[in-house]
Amino acid sequence: MTSYLLSFIGWTFLPQIVTNWLQSLYYGLTYRAGANVPKPGQPKYARHYKRIYILVVLAYLLYTIIEVDLSLQPNYYKILELRYHPDKNPTNEAEATYILIRTAYDTLNDPVKRFAYDRFGPDINRWDNAKAIRDYLNHGWTSYVEFYLGTGLFLLILNILGKGQFGRFWRFVTFFGMACIEAKMILYPSPPLFPSLFLPHRPIIFEQIIILRQVFITTFIGLSQVGPVISSDSSPAIRDSLHRLQVLSNITTEESNNQLRFGFEPFSRDQHAQLELKRKMEKLAVDDFLSSDPNYMQMYSQVHQRIITSRRKNA
């Protein structure tokens, strides 16, 4: 969690500092002495600042993603490809590597430990009291809850303070989507197709989780940095159109809520009608669920066909 906080701090200060430095360097290289160099507050200066700032944010975004990928330690599957033995290579490095190889072999040779290692990484070796898959999952959920609770709280604080408003809706949608994807990656025996397609060189689940978390954080911090710079240049006509669109959307939402309330108004004072409506809605939900199950539909078709055949024979 500390590395992610450092990433937040870096995103807060570095882009502006680097942009100012690069803009000064750019003017020093492209304008001769005595030339009319753009000054802060002038449109040309603001235009140059915006372009350099976007390039800096995108470069820093790419750097942070590549850095976390390269900083991952070799996983046990790669370690077992090494050939170290104290008898042949009596150095401290060889001894440490040999111990690591033995740990890797013991871990991957145990189905329970292998399941836990694929999802939570080498941290499982510190969980002495973990024996079954349930024990490892209980330990692993601690890290999961800490990350998403801390990140969600941070996003909520930013929202309360009025920071990071650009892309706020999609930030929260992606946040909850990430939480669901990671939960599936932890609980299911094989990783989802989405991470494996984009990270074919990182087939281990816990490595994919580390990279996806970094991508989520850096991408949306980058968008929160670039978004205001881009939107500040939007014309008044565009802003007015967006405002009218938001007003119409609010009106439509309110009208839909009113229609829904009016539709259920006849049942508001009739408890028998409410119970009957609830029963029918539950039946409708069950029927809808069963109709989406291909096995159930196949069985239903077979039974229905038998009933028709039986009626024809009796007739």
Score class of each variant (00 low, 15 high):
308 I>K: 04
298 Q>P: 00
277 L>P: 02
228 P>W: 03
270 D>S: 09
241 S>W: 14
264 F>T: 14
203 P>A: 07
301 S>I: 04
218 T>F: 02
305 Q>W: 01
303 V>Y: 07
274 Q>E: 14
300 Y>L: 09
303 V>R: 07
265 E>A: 09
202 R>A: 11
290 L>A: 00
241 S>P: 01
299 M>W: 08
242 L>C: 07
279 R>W: 09
217 I>A: 01
301 S>K: 05
292 S>E: 15
255 E>G: 01
225 Q>P: 00
204 I>H: 01
232 S>I: 03
253 T>G: 09
302 Q>K: 04
290 L>C: 03
289 F>Y: 11
226 V>N: 02
208 Q>P: 03
251 I>T: 11
230 I>Q: 04
209 I>W: 04
237 A>V: 11
272 H>M: 10
294 P>N: 03
239 R>V: 14
280 K>M: 13
238 I>T: 12
252 T>Q: 08
237 A>M: 09
303 V>H: 03
251 I>A: 07
303 V>E: 12
222 G>A: 06
258 N>A: 13
236 P>S: 05
258 N>L: 15
206 F>K: 00
234 S>H: 12
211 I>G: 02
304 H>W: 06
254 E>F: 07
279 R>G: 12
278 K>T: 15
212 L>E: 05
215 V>G: 02
199 L>N: 04
285 A>G: 04
241 S>H: 10
299 M>Y: 07
284 L>N: 07
292 S>L: 06
270 D>T: 06
275 L>S: 13
301 S>C: 00
289 F>H: 04
292 S>C: 00
297 M>Y: 06
268 S>W: 07
222 G>C: 05
276 E>A: 10
239 R>W: 12
230 I>K: 00
229 V>K: 08
205 I>R: 01
240 D>L: 07
305 Q>N: 08
254 E>A: 13
266 P>K: 02
247 V>R: 06
247 V>G: 01
297 M>E: 15
250 N>L: 11
287 D>V: 04
215 V>I: 15
312 R>T: 12
249 S>D: 12
221 I>Y: 14
302 Q>L: 04
297 M>C: 09
287 D>L: 05
239 R>I: 15
259 Q>M: 13
233 D>S: 10
270 D>K: 00
269 R>C: 10
264 F>G: 01
296 Y>V: 09
283 K>E: 15
225 Q>K: 11
262 F>V: 11
211 I>E: 05
287 D>H: 03
246 Q>Y: 13
273 A>Y: 08
204 I>M: 05
279 R>F: 10
204 I>D: 09
306 R>W: 11
252 T>V: 12
203 P>V: 07
248 L>C: 02
253 T>D: 10
210 I>N: 10
258 N>H: 11
204 I>P: 00
231 S>Y: 10
246 Q>S: 12
271 Q>I: 14
222 G>M: 05
283 K>Q: 15
312 R>E: 14
211 I>R: 00
208 Q>I: 07
255 E>F: 08
286 V>F: 11
226 V>G: 02
234 S>K: 07
